[in-house]
């Protein structure tokens, strides 16, 4: 199987999409669990979160996993771009009046747009935290860990910033609501019962993730009003 086949074959492209998507989704669980530390009582959260961040950034295994994750994300994005462009080509000139949308959910048709919203969010997210943590000049806490908690906490005091996060997590929710079961289908889950199951799992997962991620900035914002 040459590389040309990988990029030309619509099914293989989709396999990449689903595997990378599921991997990222799995990461979301870990990320969310870590984030919940932010909701601990202020003092405890402060120290623990900074310690946790330090742990993540100074463990070689986690470091490797992180780079795998970045690669996965890039593959997911590039593959999506490729699929979208090819699909646009396949659809040709399209219809003058197009009402085909009534046959499917808008989010299943607009995974690309949802993805772009998430991507823009990620850029902001990386710039403000990841970049700051790695390369920025930030204070240290009493344990000597970089005080990323402070930065997070301060940023979530700003209403507009929280709003951006919440919008992004809604987009994430819809992205996952279609993406998870769709990934399972691409991987070949064809039994009618399992199809139902993966749909339930996918939608439940989507709700939990978007809700989970969204409430953290919301709570911090509300606490500090």
């Amino acid at each position: 199987m040459g590389t040309s086949v990988i990029f030309k074959n619509t099914l293989i492209r989709k396999i990449f999409m689903s595997l990378t998507g599921l991997f990222i989704a799995f990461f979301l669980i870990i990320h969310l669990l870590g984030n919940f530390q932010l909701l601990l009582p202020y003092e405890q959260a402060h120290l623990q979160y900074n310690w946790y961040s330090h742990l993540l950034s100074h463990n070689i295994i986690i470091e490797i996993i992180a780079y795998v994750l970045y690669a996965t994300l890039i593959i997911h994005i590039l593959d999506a771009l490729l699929i979208t462009l090819e699909n646009r080509k396949s659809n040709g000139q399209g219809l003058k009046v197009d009402k085909r949308g009534v046959n499917s959910s808008w989010f299943s048709r607009n995974m690309g747009i949802l993805g772009v919203i998430i991507l823009l969010f990620l850029i902001l997210h990386f710039k403000d935290y990841w970049y700051m943590y790695k390369f920025g000049n930030i204070p240290v806490d009493e344990k000597g860990n970089k005080d990323i908690f402070l930065i997070v906490h301060e940023s979530f005091k700003q209403g507009w910033y929280v709003a951006i996060y919440i919008v992004a997590f809604i987009a994430l929710g819809f992205h996952l609501a279609h993406g998870i079961w769709s990934a399972f289908r691409t991987l070949g889950v064809y039994n009618k019962w399992y199809i139902k199951l993966t749909k339930y799992i996918g939608i439940t997962f989507a709700i939990l993730m978007s809700l989970g991620f969204a409430i953290i900035p919301a709570i911090i914002y509300l606490k500090n009003l």
């Binding site: 619509t10 080509k89 396949s90 659809n91 046959n103 769709s182």
Partner: peptide, 16 residues
């Protein structure tokens, strides 16, 4: 599947 791709049909994105 190869033939389907060679004819220039797009990917299924499961919109149903």
């Amino acid at each position: 599947v190869d033939a389907m791709d060679a004819e220039g049909f797009g990917s299924c994105t499961n919109t149903e």
